[in-house]
Design a protein around this nucleic acid. Structure first.
Lengths: 199, 199
DNA sequence: AGAATTAGATACATGAATGTAGCTAATCTT
DNA sequence: AAGATTAGCTACATTCATGTATCTAATTCT
């Protein structure tokens, strides 16, 4: 005995990946406000000194981790099925929002100390490319093909689906079911682009 | 000289009010995660010892402060003006969301450590009574009077306005203008209850 | 006026995170 | 195999918040 748990020493890419994973887990559990080098190091099983060699503070580690996240699948409007494609787009959004990166971004955006972070490249690089473009991509596709009047695709309309899914995530903390998503599409998005109940 | 800033000593109600104000400011600036007795006391200009006499930890102070907030004006559908009343309801919501209490609630709801707090009475006492019932009140009023088919007033539809306003607040950090609110009403809420564009 | 409350001030031991420094040994490069 | 990198370990002084305890003096109550 004696060599209880001797593990090959991690370096470079491998070590960094472990640290990235650690920050994302940590921020979800503890929030941006309480991120510490100590906590990140503990979770990644690496000494703080190693962290300081690369990053100057916990938020830097977090941002670095976000930049290196795998991009999320983009909505890809396929057959001639507007309703189905919208539901799929929202499903992708839910998936992203529940991923480590999604939850980390949520933690950042809602943290009082993040005003400074937002204005950085973070917003364009992470949020604008993803959170904002799930149903919009699909709607644009069908508007371009004259399936509904393009002038109805306003910024407000493009936001309806994401806004309702976000609200549900915040309110209940649980992901919307497929029926929930269908209800959102049928009762909110489709009426706004002309496929609604007649008064 | 000598009596630089001698202030009458605060007691009871008055002191508690000052502390309540302090927590709400503090949580907005720093988040729930980083609330400390130290910080609250500093901001209220009272020693920590005074805080410990009444509350056991910072979150207790915060909850107490929220319970004692002035209730928000309720939407009060008036003349026969569905569109105008909806806009007013959203305007009330924005007002509430930007108040100290509103921002504090947002900070709590979005903090990772708040899972325990949510399930408490907080949700029913603070959020369900306010955040959830701005446009719903108005819509219910008009549905009851058969201005549109009551079966269209689903949970999803009742959430559309609040969801879009919330999204804007999160995305841009600035309150929506009156034109923004009107756009939300015209392009998202009204179509969902049958006053929409025809495809 | 005298007694009861209760805010304000000070002190202290404890624990967590910080940022820095220096050493050791594992892994990679040539 | 030898040298260069770089992760892992230990240590340290500093700072900040924690709870608790004790004393004082201002305010309120009777």
């Amino acid at each position: 005995m004696g060599d209880h748990g001797v593990r090959p020493r991690r370096r470079g890419e491998e070590l960094i990946k472990a640290i990235h994973d650690a920050v994302l887990e940590e921020v979800v559990e503890v929030g941006v406000g309480r991120l510490t080098m100590e906590g990140i190091g503990r979770r990644a099983a690496t000494p703080r000194t190693t962290l300081y060699r690369r990053w100057s503070d916990p938020v830097e580690v977090l941002l670095d981790a976000l930049y290196h996240q795998h991009p999320v699948e983009e909505p890809n409007p396929g057959a001639d099925d507007l309703r189905g494609d919208l539901i799929d787009a929202l499903r992708l959004m839910v998936e992203w929002a529940l991923s480590p990166a999604g939850r980390a971004v949520a933690a950042i955006l809602t943290d009082p100390k993040s005003a400074a972070l937002m204005s950085e490249t973070l917003f364009e690089r992470v949020f604008a490319n993803r959170g904002g473009t799930f149903t919009r991509t699909v709607l644009q596709h069908y508007a371009d093909r004259d399936r509904f009047p393009a002038e109805l695709l306003t910024p407000v309309v493009a936001d309806i689906g994401e806004a309702l899914v976000t609200k549900r995530l915040i309110d209940t903390g649980t992901p919307p079911t497929d029926e929930d998503l269908a209800a959102i599409v049928d009762q909110a998005i489709l009426p706004a682009i002309g496929f609604g109940p007649r008064a």
